[in-house]
Amino acid sequence: MDTLLTFLNMGGYGDFIWPAYVIVTIVLAGLLISSRRFVKAAEAELGSIKQPHQRGRREVGDET
């Protein structure tokens, strides 16, 4: 327990070191998650536009 507390204390600089690591982790994880969501949303929108568009083309093709 003492070893853990000594490690977390970081020679008295723990109040500065841990926030730095936490902020970096939050930002990098958040950027990765938001980038993946951005791709998924764009792909879903593309799929929803393409489907009626392709259906419409097929219907035009059936008439001829």
Binding site: L28, L32, S35, F38, V39, A42, E45, L46, I49, H53
Partner: peptide, 26 residues
């Protein structure tokens, strides 16, 4: 990490461009 997220975002931007051009065509 940068190249990983960059590849993800480029894929998203290409999709978003396709959405924009399809909407314009519509």
């Amino acid at each position: 990490y940068y190249f990983w997220v960059l590849l993800i975002r480029i894929r998203g931007e290409i999709c978003a461009n396709k959405v924009r051009s399809l909407r314009l065509r519509q």
